[in-house]
Structures are given as structure tokens and as C-alpha cells.
Design a binder for these strands. Structure first.
Length: 514
DNA sequence: CTACGAATAT
DNA sequence: AATATTCGTA
């Protein structure tokens, strides 16, 4: 019903960037389109330069950036570049197969903000938004409102461009901006100009999930920041970001296997009261191990749900195959959850009042319905994904069970949730949501600790398995429920209404069975 | 030169 | 504590 609560464009910055690709070669057009889509950009392709110009003129405010080939039959790429620069002042990236200096030079001289050589790779497209941003920044200096806007400055600032050709000013200097066009995407850039802080990637549950999923997909033996990054396919994320997270993740794992040799989950939760109900099911490690086929140990899946374990084990063991040891040969049987803290930040925004706690929400149901959930959740303003909340532990809320009434009848549809049987490459991860930067005024305040969910895939297959094997009846809802915690979190709030039962089967099965 | 990852900084 | 950055190594 409220499908379009907000325009994705505003909430997750680089995502939704409107790119116009111009190339007379249909093959390249396709390839580029695909790659750009993967970057979560909104792509429009065009085989004719003239037509491109026409499109641009018709919808002056319809595109954020243009990528054009240099050699085109109907109109010289440089010509197009010129027109664009003159008429709409959009950033233009030129490309060609050869890297002949003179051509590149020409492109640059004509105002190209970048010059890519074919074959073009993802890494080269991931950060093209930087050009849009840069332009905005230099153009609209007037936007001094370093106010709120939890917008994307963070992520943006955070990502590193492996290839900027220019420091920025040069190119844009002297160009006059048009107020008119400045408005549509101003939401993105507002106050970016003044406040470009360093980006700090907040590893939200969602992000972590993708991370774990990637790790599991690759196998611990072979994981490396680079590969993870590629799998995660999140444009603004850098290898360093992943490396850093990986380091932390490994630390967690090693620590776990070390001291926590056989303890079951019981003590894990910091908030017993609330925690116990929704046990951290399988945490990444668990899964990894379990899945990984470590010696039979995998069995001791998170025992959280009393008595359910058995089922879980069985299920888990079933489908899961790819054994890749987390830590080769080390104690495989330990499982714990990686504790993740969700920061509850205070916003000192005038309107909201300092005492409001906010949780970085950014949850997204893996496959579909991310919008259903997200849309509701995300405040329209600023695109920040914060949810107001008190400081209680995330687990504390069990409303879900009550509110979210999903109809248990249709487990079938559920499999989609975890991205289980899904394609191996997480191509669908495009629904990523950059976490909003902490507004200047926000600070990390208190934390609720939750265990990291990593079951994405597990859940996925788990559910699938269930369906397939018709085990549903046997399986306790709890088990099934062992889904991504973030999902629950999401549910905690009152968006039940937005959740489509069929789409989010997980919700059913009384996740929060107390 | 790239990618890792431990150490170290913020 | 969580991330970023640095830096020696492969």
C-alpha cells in the first residue's frame, strides 16, 4: 500500500544515481547497464549521441551523470560532451577503447570529469557518483546549512576513489550552476559542501550479514577483504573497510573458539530477560562451523531455543554442504554469537530533542520486501535510517509476535528471505543501505547488544529445507525464527502493517516465542 | 604494484 | 569499542 514511502534515491545515496549511458555499441551498452545497475544506479541507455542529447534536453533534471563513448557515428563524443557541459552542466565521463593521450586530453579539456578505458570494470563504476558529488559541492557552496541531514555524507566521504583525475575545482570552476537543477537532488548533497567529514562505516547488522554471507560463500580459507568486498557489492564500501571488519570478525571468532569451548548460549545474552526468548540462533560462527561441516560439532547449534536444537541441527546439517573451515582445525565446536552493538545515538536536532535515542536501523530483508519494511522505518527527512527508540536492549521487544501476524500458513514463500537458495553471488545485494552518517550532532551513546545474525543463507536454506521436507510441522517456530535478527529488530517497531506475510515468512513462525 | 593482515592510531 | 590507517610482507 505504501510502497513508495520514499524515494530510494534520497535514502541511500549513491543508490539511485541516475546515469545516462551513451554508446553506439549495443554490447557495451548492455554491459555497462548491467554493471551500473549492480551499483544500484538508475540506468538509461542510449545508442545515439543525438538521442542522448535529446533526452537530456527533454529532462533537464532527469540525470545525474552521463557516461559516453568517444567514438560514435552520429555525433562525436566530444561534441556531446560540449553540449552537455554547456547546456546542462552535468558531469560527463568519457570512455573509449584506446587510451591515446591526446584523446584523453581532449576529453578532459572538453570538460570530461573522468576518462575510462574499456574494458571498464566495476571498480571503475562504483565511485562515479563522486563526480556528481564533487560537482554539487563546488557548485552549490551556498548550501551552508550544515544542519541535520543525516544523509549520506558519510558514506560518500568515506569511499575512496581509486581514480580521481582531478582534484575537483579545476574542472568545475568557472561553470555556473543552475539553481533549478540544484533542487532535485539537493537532498543528497545538502550541506555536503560544508560538512564533509570522514566517513566511518557503521557495520550495521545488515551490512554485517552481507559480509558474513560473503565470507561463507568464499570459505574461510580463501577469504580476503577484496573478495568479500566484491561479493558484497556495495559501491561505497572500500577494501579497507572490509579488511578492518574482517580483522575484527576474526578476532571474535578466535576468541570464541578459545575460551568459549563448550558453553552453550545461555550466558551469552547480556539481557537474559529479554534475550532468552529470542536466542541468537545461529550466529555466524555457528553457522560457519555448522555449515562448514566441522566435525560433527556443528551439531550444537545455538541451543537457545530449548529443545529445538535438535531439529535445528538436523536441518542444518542437511542441506549445508560447502565446508570451509573457519579456522581450520581449531576447535570447531564452539559457537557463539558475535556481539554486535547497535548504537543508539542521540540526536541533538532541535526538532527531535536531544533525549531521543535512535537506532541505526538499516535493516533490510534480504531479498524482497526490503522496502516494505524500510519504507516505513525510514523517516522521510534526511534519509536517515534512524528509528526512535529508547535504550532498551533490542531483544527486549517482543511485540513482533503479537503485532506481526503473519500467516503461518504460507511458509513456502519464506525461502526467499534468507537468500538461501539464492544465487550464490549476492548480486541482489543492491538493496544495500548505506548507513547514514552520524550527523555532526549525533554521538554514540549507549548500546544495546545483540548478537550478530549471520544466518542469511542459513536461514534461507533452512527455510527452504523446511518447506521441501515438509518439516514445518515439526519444527518449532523458534527455530525457523532464527533468522536475521535485524529483521526482528525491524519488526519491533510498528511496521507490522507493512510487512507482507508472504514476503516475510520469517516473521510468522512466532519468532518471538517467549 | 596489489592485496593482506597485524599493529597502531583515532 | 569500533573503525581507520599505517606499514612490513608476500
Amino acid at each position: 500500500m505504501e510502497t513508495s514511502f520514499y524515494s530510494p534515491r534520497h535514502e541511500l545515496f549513491p543508490a539511485g544515481l541516475r546515469v545516462l549511458v551513451v554508446d553506439d555499441d549495443p554490447t557495451w551498452l548492455k554491459i555497462l547497464e548491467k554493471m551500473l545497475r549492480k551499483c544500484s544506479y538508475e540506468v538509461t541507455t542510449c545508442g545515439l549521441a543525438r538521442e542522448a542529447l535529446k533526452l537530456l534536453r527533454e529532462r533537464k533534471d532527469g540525470y545525474d551523470i552521463v557516461i559516453s563513448d568517444v567514438n560514435m557515428p552520429d555525433m562525436d563524443g566530444f561534441k556531446l560532451l560540449e553540449h552537455v557541459g554547456l547546456e546542462m552542466d552535468l558531469p560527463v565521463i568519457m570512455m573509449s577503447v584506446d587510451g591515446e593521450t591526446s584523446r584523453v586530453m581532449k576529453g578532459v579539456q572538453h570538460g570530461a570529469c573522468d576518462y575510462l578505458l574499456k574494458p571498464i570494470r566495476m571498480k571503475e563504476l562504483r565511485n562515479i557518483w563522486q563526480h556528481v558529488l564533487r560537482k554539487k559541492m563546488h557548485d552549490g557552496r551556498d548550501t551552508d546549512s550544515l544542519e541535520v541531514i543525516d544523509g549520506l555524507q558519510l558514506q560518500m566521504a568515506g569511499s575512496r576513489s581509486d581514480h580521481h583525475f582531478f582534484s575537483g575545482e579545476d574542472i568545475w570552476a568557472g561553470k555556473k550552476r543552475k539553481e533549478a537543477e540544484a533542487k532535485h537532488d539537493d537532498k543528497w548533497f545538502t550541506d555536503l559542501g560544508s560538512t564533509t567529514k570522514k566517513a566511518r562505516v557503521a557495520w550495521s547488522v545488515d551490512l554485517h550479514q552481507k559480509f558474513v554471507q560473503a565470507v561463507n560463500q568464499i570459505g574461510f580459507e580463501k577469504v580476503g577483504p577484496k573478495r568479500i568486498l566484491d561479493l558484497m557489492n556495495i559501491p561505497w564500501l572500500t577494501r579497507e573497510n572490509v579488511a578492518s571488519h574482517l580483522q575484527k570478525y576474526r578476532l571474535y571468532l578466535s576468541r570464541l573458539q578459545k575460551d568459549d569451548l563448550k558453553t552453550d548460549f545461555g550466558g551469552m545474552m547480556k539481557h537474559p530477560d529479554t534475550a532468552s526468548p529470542d536466542p541468537p540462533l545461529m550466529t555466524g560462527e555457528d553457522i560457519s562451523r555448522g555449515n562448514l561441516g566441522f566435525s560433527g560439532n556443528g551439531l550444537s547449534m545455538s541451543a537457545n531455543s530449548k529443545g529445538h536444537e535438535t531439529h535445528v541441527k538436523g536441518i542444518l546439517q542437511g542441506p549445508r554442504v560447502e565446508p570451509k573451515g573457519l579456522f581450520t582445525g581449531e576447535n570447531p565446536d564452539k559457537q557463539e554469537s558475535m556481539d554486535m552493538k547497535i548504537a543508539i545515538r542521540q540526536s541533538s536536532m532541535p526538532s527531535s530533542g536531544p533525549e531521543e535515542g535512535r537506532i541505526v536501523f538499516d535493516c533490510s530483508v534480504p531479498d524482497h520486501s526490503p522496502q516494505s519494511v524500510n519504507s516505513k522505518l525510514q523517516p522521510a527527512e534526511g534519509g536517515a535510517k534512524f528509528i526512535e527508540t529508547t535504550e532498551q536492549p533490542l531483544y527486549a521487544d517482543s511485540r513482533c509476535s503479537t503485532h506481526v501476524t503473519v500467516n503461518p500458513m504460507k511458509p513456502q514463500s519464506s525461502n526467499t528471505v534468507g537468500g538461501p537458495g539464492m544465487d550464490n553471488n549476492m548480486s541482489h545485494c543492491q538493496d544495500f543501505q548505506p548507513i547514514p552518517p552520524y550527523p555532526p550532532s549525533m554521538q554514540s551513546q549507549s548500546f544495546g547488544s545483540i548478537s550478530m545474525p549471520q544466518y542469511d543463507s542459513q536461514v534461507g536454506w533452512l527455510q527452504q529445507d523446511l518447506q521441501i521436507s515438509e518439516l514445518q510441522g515439526h519444527i518449532d517456530p523458534c527455530i525457523v525464527a532464527e533468522g536475521p535478527i535485524h529483521v526482528y529488530d525491524a519488526l519491533r517497531f510498528d511496521y507490522e502493517q507493512f510487512v507482507d506475510p508472504y514476503e516475510c515468512p520469517i516473521f510468522d513462525h512466532g519468532l518471538f516465542i517467549a
